[in-house]
Computed example of a mutant assay.
Amino acid sequence: MFFQGWSGILRVLVVGALAYVAMVLFLRVSGKRTLAKLNAFDLVVTVALGSTLASILLSSSVALAEGVAAMLTLIGCQYIVAWSSVRSRRVARLVRSEPTLLLRDGEICERALRECRMTEAELRTVVRSNANAEPSEVAAVILESDGSFSVIPSPEEGRASFAETGLRL
């Protein structure tokens, strides 16, 4: 249970080092976009790569070559989808989600909350954790396409409000 022999440890060390080198090389070749987590698809690829690396390291039934092929497949698919979404609006709409405005100048957008399956209490938690404020003290809260929240503080005296800036979401 605590120790099954040196061969398993040696396998993890050798295969782990080789899989790590392969992952670094693939990520360098594929570019920064592979791990950018700009949308849900990017996040899924990042998690899948981590899971694949863990399988290579810890499962003796997964050969290094199979694991490297799996990583290469994931990175290749992500590259093709990202490349296609830059060149085709149809593909971009299919893969990317648009940011959603949940709160504007202190007013909660009820419809947007329902569409995002969020409660007002959850939105208040986001505001408190990001701005230490109440919703009435915040210019905007945006649910970004990667699932993170952007909280834009209310402008200072004499500066334009969020609505007056002309920004549209």
Rank of each mutant, 00 (worst) to 15 (best):
A70D: 08
R87K: 13
V24K: 05
D42Y: 13
R90S: 14
T52W: 01
I56P: 00
S85D: 08
F41H: 14
A69H: 06
D42L: 12
K32M: 02
F41G: 11
T34E: 11
C77H: 00
F26K: 03
F41T: 13
I56F: 03
L94I: 07
P99T: 06
V62G: 03
V47I: 15
V86Q: 15
L35W: 10
G67M: 03
R33L: 09
A63T: 08
G76M: 04
S59D: 14
L64A: 06
S84G: 09
M23L: 14
G76A: 06
S51W: 02
V45S: 08
A82Y: 09
I56Q: 01
L43A: 11
V81A: 12
S51I: 02
S55N: 11
A40E: 09
T73W: 10
R28Y: 02
R89W: 08
A36W: 07
T46N: 12
M71D: 03
R33I: 10
L94H: 06
R87W: 09
L53P: 00
L38W: 03
A36K: 06
G50I: 05
R33G: 15
V91F: 10
S84V: 00
V24R: 07
V81C: 05
L27N: 08
V29E: 01
L43D: 04
S61P: 02
G76Y: 04
L64K: 01
E66G: 03
S84P: 00
L43C: 09
R96D: 15
A63V: 00
T100W: 01
L49F: 09
G50N: 04
V44F: 12
K37I: 10
L43M: 12
T46E: 04
V45L: 08
L72P: 00
G76D: 01
V68C: 04
S97M: 12
S85P: 02
E66L: 04
K32W: 04
F41W: 12
G50L: 05
L25S: 09
T52Q: 02
R87A: 05
R90T: 15
V24E: 03
T100N: 04
A65D: 06
F26S: 10
L38V: 12
R28D: 01
R28S: 04
L72I: 07
T73S: 11
T34R: 07
V47N: 01
R87S: 07
W83Y: 15
V29F: 13
M71Q: 09
S30W: 07
W83G: 02
Q78P: 05
T46C: 13
R87Y: 06
I56H: 03
V44G: 05
C77F: 13
K32I: 00
T52D: 01
A63Y: 07
L72F: 15
L57R: 00
V91E: 06
R33Y: 05
L94G: 07
S61H: 12
A63L: 04
L35V: 14
L58W: 05
V95E: 06
V86P: 00
T46G: 12
R89T: 11
V24S: 06
R90I: 10
